[in-house]
Design a binder for these strands. Structure first.
Lengths: 112, 112
DNA sequence: GGGGTTGCTTACGTCGAGGTGAGAAATACG
DNA sequence: CGTATTTCTCACCTCGACGTAAGCAACCCC
C-alpha cells in the first residue's frame, strides 16, 4: 500500500487524512478533546486497542503536532496526553463529522 | 483486524468512519461533491486508484446511501455517480476537515 | 475482421496496519 | 523477598485493503 500522502499533494483533505487516518486516530482525537488523559484511561475508553498500537498512534499524533505528551517523573510512571492548539483546531474540524454520524445513526446502522 | 464498527457503538464518529474510512473514500466524496461524474473521470482525478478498488469503494458508498449510481443504456456504457442528499450532508461535514488541512498546510507538510 | 471505447470483474499477489503475549524499568509496600 | 502498578517496547503473526494484469460485453467505425 502506498502512503496516503501521494494522492494529491494540493488537496487539504490529504493532509488531514495523513494526520488522522487509520483505525484509531480520529477516536483518539475525540477522547483527547475532553481534556488531558492518562495512557491507561485512554486504553479503557477505546475498547479494543492494543497497548502497542495505542502508543504508536499517540506518538504519530505527537509527531504531527496535534498532541502533547507530558511525562511525570513518578513511580509508577504517569503520562498525560493532551491536545496542542493545533490539535484543538483539528478536533473542532472533526466535530461536524461526529455530529453527522450522530444525526444519521438510524439510517447508517440499518445499512450495515 | 476487526472491522471499524466494533469500537464504540454509541459514538457518532464510528458511524462516520464506517462510511468514509479507508484510503480513498474521503477523496471520493470530495470529487463527487463537485457534481455528477463518470467512472473514468473519477479515475483520472484520483491519481493512483486501481479500477478494481475504485469500483469497490463506489459500491460501498452506494450501499451506505451516500452515493447514487446511474447507468445509461448506451454503448460504450456510461455510468454517472453523484451524491445523494445524505451524501451532500456528509460532504458538508467533511469540508471543515479539508479546510483545516488547507489552513495548516505548511506546518503539516514540514512535519512529514 | 480488427481495433477502439467504457466500465467493470476475476484471479492472484503484496504489504503493512493492527493484534497478541511477553517482558522490562522503577519503586512502594507488606 | 515477592507482588503490584504503569507505560511502554519487542518479536511474531494474521488478515484484509489495495495493486496488477488480464479478460469481457456490447456496439461503432474503418
Amino acid at each position: 500500500m502506498e502512503t496516503m500522502g501521494d494522492v494529491d499533494q494540493t488537496c487539504g483533505m490529504s493532509l488531514a487524512i495523513d494526520v488522522v487516518g487509520g483505525k484509531w486516530k480520529m477516536h483518539l482525537m475525540w477522547v483527547l478533546a475532553e481534556g488531558p488523559v492518562r495512557f491507561g484511561q485512554i486504553r479503557r475508553k477505546l475498547d479494543g486497542v492494543s497497548e502497542k498500537v495505542l502508543a504508536e498512534n499517540l506518538r504519530q499524533l505527537e509527531a504531527s503536532g496535534v498532541v502533547h505528551r507530558e511525562l511525570y517523573a513518578e513511580v509508577p510512571p504517569r503520562v498525560e496526553y493532551s491536545l496542542t492548539p493545533l490539535g484543538e483546531s483539528l478536533s473542532v474540524a472533526l466535530k461536524p463529522l461526529e455530529d453527522w454520524g450522530e444525526e444519521h445513526r438510524e439510517v447508517l446502522s440499518s445499512r450495515r
